[in-house]
Design a protein around this nucleic acid. Structure first.
Length: 554
RNA sequence: GGGCUUGUGGCUUAGCCAGGAUAGAGCGCCGGGCUUCUAACCCGGAUGUCGGGGGUUCGAAUCCCUCCAGGCCCGCCA
């Protein structure tokens, strides 16, 4: 109802003023919708905006498409108030499964996220990428787009060569029940220590890199083995976080299939391409002064070259290419885009997020300075179990663990997604372990409360007569869900969904506090039950878009 | 040094791109509310030079300039 009503008013405003895109916004505390168009016209008509607003309001009142909308002016502002039909329309949509789904679109999207180097477990910085990426994937799918999710496996970088050196030169047996990614990290950290002590090892690592690029079978299989071991660990962690990739794309494939040398050959024909030892691209025309090196003087390619091949492949197979990358990739992201433009290829839309650091400083896999996602999940789950156990003595242990696991992921995902990606953050255990307001569990709890009421109510006849302030406010917020989803997808900003879901839970809790449902009667009871069902459904859809389970009980 | 980015009550933050009506929340603090649909809840109170300064505008947290502070980047790493 929100999107439709918004459009109706916008068109009426356009018709009344002749302005093609009249300003119209959410009315906030003042109204359902509001326009400041009188300010714009005041300058043009050289008349006071208040007068213009009054006249415009009169014209709009005569518009047949706005019959159910109350129009008033407040000084120069024109405010629009929706009526009963808006609430009725909203609730009848919101009680249906899949509420918020937007029309199916033909554009196919490939979205790449996480793509951490397989040299150690995912840590609390990496999962910011995962959670932003996965929430975007879910949002896009709900918004009607077919999406393929890819993980780009950097399987031939220097870090992996270091790991391989460690596996072949150090005591590298896995420990009892050690996850593959943690095992790889241990060897990687040890190998780095050895390298610091003996710089001669660097040339041995270089040899591994040359051999893998040439396709030396034994070396390739060594690389594959350690990378696979690490990826198995990643998959386990990602699955705990409810993030799923459709495809893992291996970087080395773009060497083997010739795509990398093909893109370099194409670039050689460009004036911007220079070969003086290294092969590099001059992107100064795009405002980038840094040389974009694609090939080393020893003839091996660098990451950037393979990344170009990967992006060309994505661009040719999909209509939109979206990458979620850390802010440290901003420069190379713009270099990548500038080079793809040079070649006339499709360019990616890149969502950058800022770093997560620890109170003692930035994280480093090499130095072993990080909090792994696995540790985080384990600790938060333990705390959630204590919390559930304290509240639900009626449940057996297995049931409590099940709720705790779900609550823990809700807490983690929400804690991360609620912050705008452009803010750098310092990881804080206290916040990670907070299950109260502005948390994932808080929203899950509102959903569980709604489920509880509906479970006790049994069958009922939908009704739409709402009159209390908290009822109307809740219904009007439910109306905004498709609009918020559309904005989130348009701006590539998943945290809008997080904010929305929290506000919805807030409004439901206020309604819950003041208006009894099961103890009310007749039309009022059915209307409140309808409102509770609509809320439950919207909370569920919003939570699932955030990758959080909508628990029926907790 | 250059580039990008962030700076909003004690702490965490929304709002900024597409400028408008008293700057929203949460934590913490103070005071209330469970024989009532799950208190992971709700209500009330105190707390703000929206980093500083200048500018544009009828109007600036929002746009521009400048300064200050934090983060990130500036590899033949990825």
């Amino acid at each position: 109802m929100y999107l439709e009503t918004f459009e109706t008013i916008r068109q009426a405003l356009a018709a009344a003023t002749g302005i093609e895109h009249p300003p119209l916004a959410d009315g906030g505390a003042h109204a359902d919708f509001a326009s400041t168009i009188a300010f714009d016209l005041a300058k043009e008509l050289k008349r006071p905006p208040v007068q213009i607003a009054v006249e415009l309001a009169e014209t709009l009142a005569g518009d047949s498409s706005l019959q159910t909308i109350r129009i008033e002016t407040r000084g120069p502002y024109i405010n629009f108030h929706t009526g009963d039909d808006f609430v009725r329309g909203t609730l009848s949509q919101a009680i249906l499964p899949g509420y918020g789904n937007l029309p199916v679109k033909p554009e196919r999207i490939v979205l790449e996220h996480t793509s951490a180097n397989p040299n150690g477990p995912l840590h609390v910085g990496h999962i910011r990428n995962t959670i932003i990426g996965d929430t975007l994937v879910r949002s896009f799918r709900k918004a009607g787009y077919p999406v393929e999710v890819q993980y780009y496996v950097n399987d031939m970088g220097r870090q992996i060569a270091i790991v391989v050196w460690g596996f072949t030169h150090l005591d590298s047996a896995p420990r009892e029940s050690e996850k593959g990614d943690h095992h790889v990290a241990r060897v990687y950290i040890a190998a780095n220590r050895e390298m610091e002590a003996d710089p001669a090892i660097v040339s041995e690592v270089d040899r591994f890199m040359q051999k893998v690029e040439k396709g030396d079978a034994e070396t390739v299989s060594l690389f594959r083995k350690v990378v696979s071991e690490c990826l198995d660990g990643f998959r386990e962690t990602l699955s705990l976080l409810h993030a799923r990739h459709d495809r893992f794309v291996w970087e080395s494939d773009f060497i083997r299939n010739g795509d990398t040398s093909r893109v370099i050959d194409r670039l050689k024909r460009q004036d911007e391409c220079h070969q003086d030892g290294t092969l590099w691209i001059d992107l100064s025309a795009a405002g980038i002064e840094k040389e974009y090196v694609l090939r080393r003087s020893d003839g091996t390619t660098v990451y950037a070259a393979r990344d170009l091949a990967y992006h060309i492949w994505k661009g040719r197979n999909f209509d939109r290419v979206i990458d979620v990358l850390g802010a440290d990739h901003k420069l190379i992201g713009s270099q990548l885009i500038a080079t793809l433009k040079l070649l006339g290829e499709r360019t990616p839309e890149i969502v950058h997020f800022e770093f997560v650091s620890l109170p003692e400083g930035s994280m480093s896999t090499r130095a072993g300075k990080f909090i792994s996602a696995d540790e985080l999940i384990e600790e938060v789950t333990r705390r959630a179990f204590d919390e559930v156990s304290a509240r639900r003595k009626d449940l057996d242990e297995e049931a409590r663990w099940a709720i705790a696991r779900s609550v823990a992921i809700a807490a983690i995902r929400y804690d991360i997604v609620k912050i705008s990606p452009e803010k750098s953050t310092v990881f804080d255990w206290k916040e990670a372990l907070d299950f109260e307001r502005q948390s994932g569990p808080y929203i899950q709890y509102a959903h569980a409360r709604a489920c509880s009421i509906l479970g006790k109510a049994g069958e009922f006849e939908p009704a739409f007569t709402l009159s209390m302030e908290s009822e109307i406010a809740l219904a009007k917020h439910i109306a905004k869900f498709p609009w918020v989803l559309a904005n989130s997808v348009r701006d590539l900003r998943p945290h809008l969904i997080a904010t929305y879901a929290r506000e919805l839970a807030d409004l439901f809790n206020v309604f819950y506090q003041f208006e009894p449902v099961l103890k009310s009667e007749g039309e009022t009871k059915n209307s409140r039950l309808t409102l509770v069902l609509a809320t439950k459904n919207t909370l569920k859809e919003a939570l699932e878009t955030l990758g959080i389970e909508a628990l029926a009980t907790m």
